[in-house]
């Protein structure tokens, strides 16, 4: 059956070993980064590198770099929805105080953390 299919995108394969090597080096950096102890650097090495690694896996291993654009749109729409969800519910879930109100329940527990 598989022969009748359009063998879509018979593209040349990149050097996967090199990509794997880069990913492992990035992994090592992201583990070592926090050991320096600068919070901003930790954030960048941890999450910045995670994004880079994810993009590399998506582009080269999942072949999104040669895939039809519509796949990107599918994934981006799903991701966008999650960002939207995060920022819209953040005022409720993350901050428990506003201009004219505050949540008593969370203030009791987190007073030492939130206010200082």
């Amino acid at each position: 059956m598989s022969d009748s299919h359009p063998t879509s995108q018979a593209h040349p394969h990149p050097n996967y070993f090199k990509i794997w090597g880069t990913l492992v080096i990035l992994l090592i950096v992201s583990v070592l980064g926090p050991l320096i102890g600068i919070p901003l650097l930790t954030l960048m090495t941890a999450f910045g590198i995670a994004v880079v690694k994810a993009l590399m896996v998506a582009a080269y291993f999942m072949h999104l770099n040669v895939e039809k654009k519509i796949i990107w749109y599918i994934l981006l729409i799903c991701l966008t929805l999650m960002f939207l969800f995060f920022f819209v519910i953040a005022p409720d879930i993350m901050n428990h105080e506003g201009t004219n109100w505050h949540s008593i329940g969370s203030a009791v527990k987190n007073s030492d953390v939130v206010h200082h």
């Binding site: 999650m82 969800f85 993350m94 987190n110 953390v113 939130v114």
Partner: peptide
């Protein structure tokens, strides 16, 4: 795509509560 929103929902929940509960 559907898995992204499943994991996304879980991780967004985690992230928000984590940022709120610094302890």
């Amino acid at each position: 795509g559907s898995e992204i929103v499943i994991f996304g929902g879980l991780l967004v929940s985690y992230l928000l509560l984590r940022l709120h509960n610094l302890d």
